[in-house]
Design a protein around this nucleic acid. Structure first.
Lengths: 256, 256
DNA sequence: CGCGATTTGTGCACGTCTTCACAAGCGCCT
DNA sequence: AGGCGCTTGTGAAGACGTGCACAAATCGCG
C-alpha cells in the first residue's frame, strides 16, 4: 500500500468507472469528509480511522463507514483509511478533478461577495464569467473579471464550457436568468434568489436561502423559549430537571 | 371564515400554545410556504388551495397538506386555506413576530454582503450589531452600523438581547467566536465558516457552506456526464432510447 | 507461525419522511 | 333541503436514512 498511484485517476483509467449512484444524503456529506481530510493531510496524518474522520467531520462513525463503503473499499481493517488515497477518490467521485467553470449572474450585494469568495477556487471551482442585467454595472471589474451583460451569456458560453450557473439576482429576475442558463446548456444551477425555479428535466437546481436558515433557527429559539417558559405543561412540575434550564432535549447540532 | 382576528396572536393569547414539535423536515419547508403565501397575498389572493400553494412553493401537494396539518387545521374543505390567517400562524410558529436581533461576527467579504442583505429585515430579522477581530475594521460603518471589536460582544449583548449569532469569519476563527457567542447566552448560530463547531447541548447550529453546494452539483454533473458517455453499460445497446440524450433518468429538481 | 488487538464493512432493526388514495367536510346551486 | 363537486385531513404503505452490533480482515508482536 502507501504510495498512491496517479492522483485523479482511481481504478482503471480506461473505461469510465460508471459512478455508483450514491444516496443523496451520502453525496451531501462527501464534501465535508473531503474538507476534513484536507485538514488531516495538512497536519501530517497519513491514515485516519473512521472514528477520527467522523469526529472531524461532525458525524457518526458508523454513518461515515457506510458512506465510504458506497464508494468501494478504500480502507484497511485494523488500520484505517489512507488519507491521500481517499482524498483523490472523493475528489474524483465529486468530479472536482476537472476544474469546473462557473458563471455568476447578478453582481449585487451578494453576488459581489460570491465573486470575491476564495473558497471556490481552493476547491476546484473557477469563476469564469460575471454577468448582470444592469448596464451601469457592466464593465465593472471584480476580482480581475469584467462584468458582462447577461445578454452576452450565449456568446461567452460558446467560448468557454460553463459547468455550473450561480444565480444571485433579485427573485424577479431569477427565472428568466435560469431560462437563459438552460438555453446555453447549463445543467446545474445554484440559486440564491428567494424563489422556486422551474427547469426542464435533467437540470439540477439547488437553492441557498439565507433567510430560510434564519427562520429555521428562529423556530427552534421559539420552541426552546416556550419549553423553558412553561415546564408545568401536562402537570408534573415535580419533574423539574436538576440541571436547570440547560437540560432541554433538543438535538445537539442540526444536520443537513 | 374571512376576517382574520388579531394578526400575530393566533389561538388564545393567554396560555402559551406550547408549540407542537414539528418534524424537522416540515420546519425546513415552512419558510418556503411563508414566502409563497406573501407573494399570493400581494397578488390579491384571499384563499389558496393546497395544490396552488404547493406548486408556488415547489413541493408536492400532499406533503404540503401534511405539513400544515401538523400546525392544526387552518384550511377549509372545499375552499382552501385563508392566506392571511395562514401567514399569521406560520409567522407565529416560526417565532418571527418578535423581531429577532441577530449579531454578525466577521465583516470580511461575505460578512459585508450579509450585513447589507435586505432579505433579513424584510422577514423579521434585524441585524443588531457587527463585530470583527481585525482592529483595522473596527469603526467601519456598514449599512448604518458601526463595526465593533469582537471582545466587546459581552458588553453589547448585555444591552441588547441577541437571539441568533451569525459567524462569517475564516474557519480558524469560527470556534472561538462560537464559544464567545455561547458564553453571552446565544443559543442559535448560523455558521458560514467551512468547519464543524462544537457547542454545548441546547445550542442549535446550522451551517451554510457555499462550496459544499457547488460540490454536490459537481457530483451530479459528473454523474450525468458519465451516463451519457457510455449508454451501453451492462450490454443491451438495443435499449438505446428513441429520445436521444435527453432521456436521463435523473430526478428532476433536487429537494432539500 | 499463531494470536490478540484493532478497525473496517455490513446485516438488521428502527425511526423518519414521502406518497398515495380516500373518507370526511364544506359550500354552492338547484 | 338536498345533492354534487371540490378540497382538506389522514391512515397506511413504501422508500429512505440512521445507528447498533458484530463478523471479517489486517497488522504487529511474541
Amino acid at each position: 500500500m502507501s504510495q498512491h498511484r496517479h492522483p485523479g485517476a482511481p481504478k482503471r483509467a480506461g473505461a469510465v468507472p460508471a459512478l455508483p449512484d450514491l444516496p443523496e444524503a451520502t453525496v451531501a456529506r462527501l464534501p465535508e469528509y473531503l474538507r476534513a481530510l484536507h485538514n488531516l493531510a495538512e497536519s501530517g496524518h497519513e491514515t485516519v480511522s473512521s472514528e477520527g474522520l467522523a469526529s472531524a467531520a461532525g458525524v457518526n462513525s458508523a454513518k461515515l463507514r457506510k458512506d465510504l463503503s458506497h464508494l468501494g473499499s478504500y480502507g484497511t481493517r485494523g488500520v484505517g483509511y489512507d488519507v491521500a488515497l481517499l482524498v483523490d477518490h472523493i475528489e474524483y467521485v465529486l468530479g472536482l478533478t476537472q476544474g469546473r467553470a462557473v458563471a455568476l449572474v447578478g453582481v449585487g450585494n451578494l453576488g459581489h461577495a460570491l465573486a470575491g469568495y476564495d473558497g471556490f477556487a481552493s476547491r476546484g471551482f473557477r469563476i469564469a464569467a460575471l454577468f448582470d442585467a444592469d448596464p451601469s454595472r457592466v464593465g465593472e471589474v471584480i476580482n480581475g473579471l469584467i462584468v458582462q451583460h447577461v445578454d452576452d451569456l450565449a456568446r461567452v458560453a460558446a467560448e468557454e464550457l460553463i459547468s455550473i450557473g450561480l444565480i444571485a439576482t433579485p427573485a424577479s429576475a431569477a427565472q428568466p436568468v435560469a431560462d437563459q442558463l438552460v438555453a446555453v446548456g447549463v445543467t446545474s444551477i445554484l440559486n440564491f434568489a428567494p424563489c422556486v425555479l422551474s427547469v426542464p428535466e435533467g437540470v439540477d437546481v439547488r437553492k441557498v436561502d439565507l433567510a430560510i436558515e434564519l427562520q429555521i433557527l428562529s423556530f427552534h429559539e421559539h420552541r426552546k423559549a416556550s419549553l423553558t417558559a412553561l415546564p408545568a405543561t401536562g402537570g408534573s412540575a415535580l419533574t423539574a430537571l436538576p440541571g436547570g434550564l440547560a437540560a432541554t432535549d433538543t438535538q445537539e447540532a442540526i444536520g443537513t
